[in-house]
Amino acid sequence: MNRQRHEHEEELLGPYVLGVLDAEDVRRVEEHVGGCLRCREEVAALREMEAALGEVPAEAFLDGPPVGGDLLLQRTLRRVRGEAAAARRRRWGLAGLAAAASLAAVFWTGARVGGGGEPVAAPPPDPSPAVTAAPSPPPAGTRVASATDPGTGARMTVKVTPAAKWVRVHAAVTGVPPGERCRLVVVSRDGKRSTAGSWVVGGQAQAGGQGGAAGGEAKGAALDGSAWVDPADVREVLVENESGRTFVSVPVPAAV
């Protein structure tokens, strides 16, 4: 075999296994490989490399931050702050929740089960000055926090808006099993618990709206509530069921 020709054909083996050669080149390669044991082995080895490339998703080559991901970053940063703060509190031994029953549910402004096409996990409006897209600045002292309970898988993003000696609470809750009768509870710094509202977690009947959600967990809910807790005293917001099992608890950072 002509050595130069062999080398030329050999250089086509890579693009051949990558499937990018035109018909004429493919014919040439196959003709050559048919009579060249070394090239047949080379093709087999290169095919393994081609298969290896297949283990990597094409998205792996996208660089930089995601488009429109500011809220995602802010939520993540808040959660990190919240977890760091929670870790500090645990160290101080203040984690125990007072068992006092909630005293009142006030101004339940309508729990709506997030249905339709609305993404249930959408975070509440962002108070951070870093997010310029917010149409109007939220009231001073508004806090947003988010947490996922590793045990139950439930997740909540909550926004606490201060009023005069009480707070409005907006929460997006996902990952609680369908049918659970849940309370949204505001815990103050002295351990007092105030129910800000209650709802029943939607079942699968409505789950169709959550298009393609691979999480596939129970219906999420977007909730508005309120509680007579002094804004400065809010320590955490949690979701529990009627028997007192806590699904997720979100530490609320101190107002800045």
Binding site: P66, G69, P119, A213
Partner: peptide, 26 residues
């Protein structure tokens, strides 16, 4: 986030078919 966020979100969005879910995953 700055270095890998785009790749992660694009990948998660393709797998879940849902941007909100993908953001949770990221």
């Amino acid at each position: 986030y700055e270095e890998h966020g785009h790749a992660l979100l694009a990948y998660a969005t393709r797998l879940t078919g849902d941007r909100a879910t993908a953001e949770d995953v990221v």
